[in-house]
Simulated assay, not measured.
Amino acid sequence: MTKSTQDLTFLTPKKTNSLGAILVDAGISAGFPSPAEDFKQQRLSLDEELIKNKEATFFARVSGQSMINAGLNDNDLLIIDRSLEPEHNKIAVCFLDGEFTVKRLRVEKDGIWLQPENDNYKPIKITQDNQFVIWGIVTNVIKKV
């Protein structure tokens, strides 16, 4: 299932019986590889590695640049867990005044702020006038290289 908003495109994880991709468990050298090093192969499921609660987990694509200093770039794929409790400094997907957005939560004595990670964007103070829901917590990001 896919659902789009202006800032994020949501995707529901597909249930699969796949054994996963093959993992070469020798460590990949970023320097000079050793041709003599043996390696072991096993199956790796990204679902098992990245998703703790399948029933409460969704994917969403980032649209925009407000979180680039947190490593979230346009078109990155977010893994969002709706079962996690929101906490100060966590990155959250929020529903704010009719639109979804992804921001860092800043909880202070004077209230809750949605903190962008790009100096070109201003923090958003949540007030009683806002329609506001913390929809889920970002647990991982998948990038294309």
Results as ranks from 00 to 15, higher is better:
residue 24 V to Q: 14
residue 25 D to V: 02
residue 25 D to W: 04
residue 26 A to C: 13
residue 26 A to W: 00
residue 27 G to V: 00
residue 27 G to P: 12
residue 28 I to G: 12
residue 28 I to V: 15
residue 28 I to Y: 13
residue 29 S to R: 03
residue 29 S to E: 12
residue 29 S to Q: 10
residue 29 S to D: 11
residue 30 A to C: 07
residue 30 A to E: 12
residue 31 G to D: 12
residue 31 G to P: 07
residue 31 G to Q: 09
residue 32 F to R: 01
residue 33 P to G: 05
residue 34 S to A: 00
residue 34 S to M: 06
residue 35 P to N: 09
residue 36 A to Y: 11
residue 37 E to N: 12
residue 37 E to R: 06
residue 38 D to L: 11
residue 39 F to H: 15
residue 39 F to Q: 12
residue 39 F to K: 00
residue 40 K to Q: 15
residue 40 K to N: 09
residue 41 Q to E: 15
residue 42 Q to P: 05
residue 43 R to E: 15
residue 43 R to I: 07
residue 45 S to T: 08
residue 45 S to I: 05
residue 45 S to L: 15
residue 45 S to P: 05
residue 46 L to A: 10
residue 46 L to P: 05
residue 47 D to K: 00
residue 47 D to S: 02
residue 47 D to Q: 05
residue 48 E to V: 03
residue 48 E to G: 10
residue 50 L to S: 03
residue 50 L to N: 07
residue 50 L to G: 04
residue 51 I to H: 04
residue 51 I to F: 05
residue 51 I to V: 09
residue 52 K to T: 05
residue 52 K to S: 10
residue 54 K to M: 07
residue 54 K to A: 08
residue 54 K to R: 00
residue 54 K to W: 06
residue 55 E to H: 06
residue 55 E to G: 14
residue 55 E to R: 03
residue 56 A to E: 10
residue 57 T to K: 01
residue 57 T to A: 02
residue 58 F to P: 01
residue 58 F to Y: 12
residue 59 F to T: 02
residue 60 A to S: 12
residue 60 A to M: 11
residue 61 R to T: 01
residue 61 R to I: 00
residue 62 V to I: 15
residue 62 V to S: 06
residue 62 V to W: 11
residue 63 S to R: 01
residue 63 S to W: 10
residue 64 G to C: 13
residue 64 G to M: 14
residue 64 G to F: 11
residue 64 G to I: 09
residue 65 Q to A: 08
residue 65 Q to T: 13
residue 65 Q to M: 12
residue 67 M to Q: 08
residue 67 M to T: 00
residue 68 I to F: 13
residue 69 N to W: 12
residue 69 N to T: 02
residue 70 A to H: 04
residue 70 A to E: 15
